[in-house]
């Protein structure tokens, strides 16, 4: 990894941790917290997304599972840390079953099956009203201060980022890349592709479920639509792919870009918010297209600073 990239990463993550500790109250507190949560979702999405090429449209399933397990534990009388441990364990079991089921699917089918799982969980949480509060959702009292919640979330982001870097540099990361290139060829040279996929998906699922429970602890409320949220899944996907930078920088910068763009568009402009956001998405996609064409490459080279 180049020195500038390491220092850059340190600056971003450090700034987020300091912001989390410094701004815990008011709107800025919520803004920083949602930035961190989106970061955890995008980085964890990117683990199988980047190495295995698996695009999940239902990454928020794990987020919702974590939130609901935590919420139900609290309503059953558990305090914060026992509820946290219990919900991480329960979510891990749930995530294991889901990943075991879906790990064998091809790319397109995997995307859609994950979407299906998300919808099933959304409907189940609406139907099991006595446990989940139905479509109104669960409301829990404050179990941990906002400051502590922000700090825990910031450390979870650091841990997820570290997990991303370590995984991609490990033997399993290489296995994943081989599996993505050709599953048959990978198996022929003795790579246990199914295990690789399951491991990668589990590493991705656990931070997402922890993000869900921290989100509930911070906001006191989760509903089927906000917990098993398609918007959150799509934001994670966009954040992971919108900035064409390799490694951990891609999703981190993606989250910064998307969260900042949404913030400005939805608070500073009256009307045509979606259209403006759409234009940003289009521009980002076109930028990738322009980069890939000969003419575009030549044009970009003229403006590049310090490229070797």
């Amino acid at each position: 990894m180049k020195i500038w990239r390491i220092s850059f990463l340190t600056v971003i993550l450090g700034a987020l941790v300091i912001s989390a500790a410094y701004f815990s109250e008011g709107y800025l507190g919520i803004f920083v917290f949602s930035l961190i949560i989106n970061g955890i979702m995008a980085v964890s999405f990117d683990i199988p997304g980047r190495s295995l090429g698996l695009i999940s449209l239902g990454h928020a399933t794990f987020f919702g599972m974590g939130a609901y397990c935590f919420g139900i534990s609290i309503t059953q009388g558990f305090t914060f840390f026992p509820a946290l441990i219990l919900s991480v364990l329960l979510s891990a079991v749930g995530a294991f079953i889901i990943t075991l089921l879906l790990a064998g699917l091809g790319h397109g089918y995997y995307s859609l099956a994950t979407l299906g799982v998300l919808i099933v969980f959304q409907r189940l949480s609406e139907t099991l009203e006595s446990l989940t509060g139905g479509s109104a959702g669960l409301y829990i009292p404050e179990t941990i201060s906002k400051l502590h919640c922000n700090i825990l979330a910031a450390f979870l982001l650091l841990a997820t980022a570290a997990g991303h870097v370590l995984y991609s540099r490990s033997r399993w990361g290489l296995y994943s890349k081989e599996t993505e290139a050709s599953e048959e060829a990978a198996e022929a040279i003795g790579i246990p592709t199914r295990k690789v996929k399951t491991a990668s998906l589990m590493i991705s699922a656990i931070p997402a479920s922890m993000a869900g429970l921290l989100h509930l602890a911070r906001t006191s409320h989760v509903s089927p639509v906000s917990g098993f949220s398609l918007t959150l899944s799509i934001t994670a996907l966009l954040a992971s792919r919108i900035v064409p930078a390799r490694g951990i920088l891609g999703p981190l910068l993606g989250v910064l870009l998307i969260t900042a763009a949404e913030e400005v568009i939805w608070t500073k402009f009256e009307g045509f918010n979606h259209a403006l956001f759409g234009l940003i998405l289009l521009s980002a996609a076109w930028y990738q297209g322009v980069q890939s064409s000969e003419a575009g490459l030549n044009l970009i080279k003229k403006f590049r600073v310090g490229e070797k």
Binding site: P244, L257, T259, A260, E263, S292, E307
Partner: peptide
């Protein structure tokens, strides 16, 4: 795909500015 250091800096400065 390639990306430039300047692009990365631009995104970051923009975000922290906001």
């Amino acid at each position: 795909l390639k990306y430039s250091e300047s692009f990365v800096w631009l995104v970051s400065i923009l975000t922290f500015g906001i």
